[in-house]
Simulated assay, not measured.
Amino acid sequence: MKQQVLDCFAKLFGGEGDIRTYFAPGRVNLIGEHTDYNGGHVFPCALTIGTYMAARKREDRKLRFYSMNFEKLGVVESSLDEFQMGKEGNWTAYPKGMMWAFCQKGFPVEQGFDIVLYGNIPNGSGLSSSASVETVTGVMLRDMFGYDTISMIDIALYGQFSENNYNGVNCGIMDQFAIAMGKKDCAIFLDTSDLKYEYAPVKLEGARIVISCSNKKRGLGDSKYNERRSECETALAEIQKVKDIKSLGELTEEEFEAVKDAIKDPVRQKRAKHAVYENQRTVQAVAALKANDIAKFGELMNASHVSLRDDYEVTGIELDTLVEEAWNCPGVIGSRMTGAGFGGCTVSIVKTEDIDNFIAKVGAAYKEKIGYAADFYVVDIGDGAGVLK
């Protein structure tokens, strides 16, 4: 993959000079959905699929971008003097947003670049292709300009800052953190309220992670993602009138039940319930994994999907079909939607000997009910973003 990107770079921009290569993975969240902006816990892992970048500094301030995934766009030319917050109109909003964020954080980007990207994450799938592009850009900028004081956690925070302020999506920190800080064969148990984290080995003896992509595209900015976040913020403000908390993630189920009537709107009450209960499910799921109780982990994954479907209402017929068909397949330990929802992917833990049957059966049922095919990826947990040697 690296060589393909370098070959494309040489063809477009010439092969001379200091051309460097980078990689940032995609991520999948095993459990803990829509908790990261509610001060709760998440449990994501980096994948071995992701975004490859070749880049070379320019002597001027011109930016030339090319994506091997969007060949019809050709080379997109821009400049460091042409930042257009929320108005870029194509994929270059993500690398440009990261360059803007570096400038805003006191790390100037004063030379332009020639850049070629290739990603083998399905676009719009909920596996964080956009955060992967942001993170690989951050790693490149740190390396190219020698900004060694910037940590990988800083890069994750700059990516979130860019997404929130340059691209207008009120995402939490999970995606960028998992991509920046990923570790092979481990998921990250992250407390989003204070960024305390630990690596938890994921030992799926006799089973593997299968991603099912609905192929229903979604854009976070024009989805109901921001609406859900606003609903939770309003619910939190209502609870704060009767209880001293900073986030919904601080509440146990019992504490929530005691104060839930402070939330006047029944829909907002359901949204807050999901945030609280999902956070507790995530804590319980990691404990189950540590105890090698993979069956319990699967049960909590299933309960997570039910909550996302009924209380948070972010699934839709495509994701529900994939999950419900998965639940009916032999060898499935657990299955749930992953990511923001409204399309995208599900994540399932499937016994190895049943994977082929799983893909065939779920794929056939999905195509019959939805009218077009889903794609399936049997994935491994990989390391976070970095410089390619």
Rank of each mutant, 00 (worst) to 15 (best):
K184I: 03
Y197T: 06
I188V: 15
R142L: 02
N165V: 13
A237E: 14
L127R: 12
D148Q: 12
G182F: 00
D222E: 14
D154E: 08
M174I: 07
Y158F: 14
S130I: 01
N170E: 11
D191P: 09
Y147V: 06
K217R: 15
T149V: 07
I153Q: 10
A200M: 13
K184E: 08
F161S: 05
G146I: 07
V136Y: 04
T135A: 00
V210A: 07
N165P: 12
L236V: 15
I211D: 04
M140S: 02
G126L: 06
D175P: 05
I150Y: 01
A207M: 02
F189R: 12
A235D: 11
E163K: 11
A131T: 09
T192R: 09
S162N: 04
D222N: 14
F189V: 11
I211V: 12
D194L: 05
E233K: 15
N165M: 10
A237C: 13
L157P: 07
I239T: 14
Y197K: 12
G126F: 05
D148C: 04
G221H: 13
E134A: 09
M174A: 09
S230Y: 13
D222H: 13
M174C: 06
S130Y: 00
N167R: 09
V133E: 02
A180S: 15
A131K: 04
A235W: 11
F145M: 03
I173R: 06
N165D: 11
A131P: 05
R218Y: 03
I155S: 03
E227L: 11
E134Y: 06
N164C: 00
R142D: 00
M144F: 10
L141K: 03
L204P: 09
I245N: 13
C171S: 14
R228C: 06
K203I: 06
R218T: 09
K184V: 06
D143F: 03
K216L: 12
D191N: 15
S212I: 01
R208H: 10
I179C: 03
S125I: 09
C232R: 15
A237D: 14
E134K: 11
I179K: 04
A180R: 03
A156I: 08
T234K: 15
I150F: 01
N170T: 11
E198Y: 04
E134L: 11
N165F: 09
A187L: 05
M144A: 07
V210R: 07
Y199I: 08
R208F: 00
D185V: 08
L157T: 12
L195F: 14
Y158Q: 05
L127G: 12
